[in-house]
Write a protein that binds this DNA or RNA. Sequence first.
DNA 1: CTGAAAGCGCTAACAA
DNA 2: TTGTTAGCGCTTTCAG
Lengths: 362, 362
Amino acid sequence: MSKPGIREIARIANVSPGTVDRALHGRKGITEETRRRILAIAGSIGYSPDLAARALSTRRAPVLVGVSIPREIRYYFDQLLAGIMSEAGRFDRLGVKVLYSPMERLGQDDVQKASELLSRRVDALILTPGDPQALTPVIDEAESRGVRVICVDTDAPSSRRSTAVCVNPEVCGRLAAELLASYLPEGSGAAVITGMLEVEDHAKKTAGFQAMYVGNGGGAVQVIEAHEDEDEAFQKCFALLSRNPIAGIYVNTVNCLPVCRAIGAAGLAGKVKLITTDLFREMAVFFEKGVIAASIHGRPFAQGEIAVRLALDHLLNGRPLPRESLLMPHVVMRSNLRHFLDAMEPAAHRRSAAEAFGGRQL
Amino acid sequence: MSKPGIREIARIANVSPGTVDRALHGRKGITEETRRRILAIAGSIGYSPDLAARALSTRRAPVLVGVSIPREIRYYFDQLLAGIMSEAGRFDRLGVKVLYSPMERLGQDDVQKASELLSRRVDALILTPGDPQALTPVIDEAESRGVRVICVDTDAPSSRRSTAVCVNPEVCGRLAAELLASYLPEGSGAAVITGMLEVEDHAKKTAGFQAMYVGNGGGAVQVIEAHEDEDEAFQKCFALLSRNPIAGIYVNTVNCLPVCRAIGAAGLAGKVKLITTDLFREMAVFFEKGVIAASIHGRPFAQGEIAVRLALDHLLNGRPLPRESLLMPHVVMRSNLRHFLDAMEPAAHRRSAAEAFGGRQL
DNA sequence: CTGAAAGCGCTAACAA
DNA sequence: TTGTTAGCGCTTTCAG
């Protein structure tokens, strides 16, 4: 009682396998009527093609997934890449190959890298549009050639990209606000330190924070743009703390270390509550000191997995792509810090690939 | 310039494809010398097998994954099942089939259901051992027949099950404690309402809570076993609140509604901070009223996905199974409540399967 | 418009 | 010990 194949359909329809193939694939050279008949039979017996056989027969080039993401910041994009590779690796039996063409840092060379991958005839393109404006023509060009573009980590919403996989920025901001409010007396003043409000992600996180913070009985919220610059963040933060009665700070971006230092320099460690974003090793000590109360973690590994998963579900199984896929951030606190740090250990430190895999399951 | 195959090696070595096959797979019936020669050639030309062709040739029977999980509590196990089906569905083109044989509720009939699936010759068995003692012989029997057993949601640690996929219970307890402490003045008394301390999951969550709560400056912690009974939980909780200065409660199990009611009945809504476990629709109103401050969510959908993923990675790709896979719980607060509720909508309410899929990505 | 037949690269059963 | 051969399920070319 094996899975029905194309021959079985042919037998029932009393036609040849070739005709069934034509019907199934909408090829020309077949009557509309026989096509319908064959499709009906195929549907009714629950036919589904054997992909291995198809791959063998068409000796079709392997499914190529182009990946163009930054190399820096390592701790973050390493995890994104690991998620991509982990998921892609599950399908290498099916001929799925990844072409990895990283750029040095976000927004740098991305047009060139994407075009290059495109010319290498990839079937799907996973990328982090650091400069959405510049990249939009390339994305649109790719889509018009039938190459599905999946934005990951950051979106290019006005392009024709098929889908985007990001952490839900509004929820990040709201969670930060709700957590912060839980630490502070009602009406406490707070500050958001962000990168640039022109960046959609930064703006949404900030807006989410503001909405939730005041809604939760918090006081005034000051917003500071630090442009991802360490010195600027330190200066502005230190100045802020010496002028204003700030009880809590939410750092929107990865640029939290200077803020930690500024809090320390102002002698407010543990006094001012700090909520940060993502996680890297240097932050651990500030958790232990009680400077960082919690961090809203963007789950880059999961983002990578999901991006590949969506691409392959579409390419291999014909599933439609959602417009976007927003994932829930994790909350990192002292309780679970160790687990997040462990999960970003390089795989080499683990006893086996399986363990590396298992260990990633956050 | 196509990829060299087994015939190419045969041509170079001046032997037949059959011999190359024997050499490559360490089969018997070949001289050690010719084997070495062939392996050398294979290595030097960078041979790698065409897996599609191999799969086609070896025509394995469909991969059967047996699933035996409870039907009740619906909200929870529906999501677990949805995760299982979603992940399995991605592989049905590869001949993966799920045999679903649910029991009415946890620990009921599980031996019978598991044995039944075993006799249906499944390749892997995913189950929730509600009664680990009773199930251990069946699990061991399965494993000795080469059927990989994957415990999900709850473990049978003294059996020979291949792996277990659970939420990390200790982290659940610790997170609850840390969150609770953030709401309360130092030294506040707290209570844990659990099911039965003989259940490993309940014990570990309780222990995690206690360790973290006192470590975080909390006061005394009272532990109450409510045996998953609504009335018992209400009575005990109400009595507790009237006798003791309790500032926060952590409910370890799904049995939180009577606790919410008891808090209300004691006139302490919003005054006593409550941390719960998981999420179902009836809880939403208590979030909105401020009775529930947060809930530690066990991510049943993700657990189901991961269980299937591990099984198939092992079965199809030969990846080793980790001893266990503990996942990080999510923290549900007012900030993100809506997203969790949306994700548990039945798929029928959504516009398309893709959206249902995308929407699950928490 | 439809049928027949030749592979795709590999495995496995049977011959030599 | 080694060679030969017949498929696995599908696509594709060439006849009819």
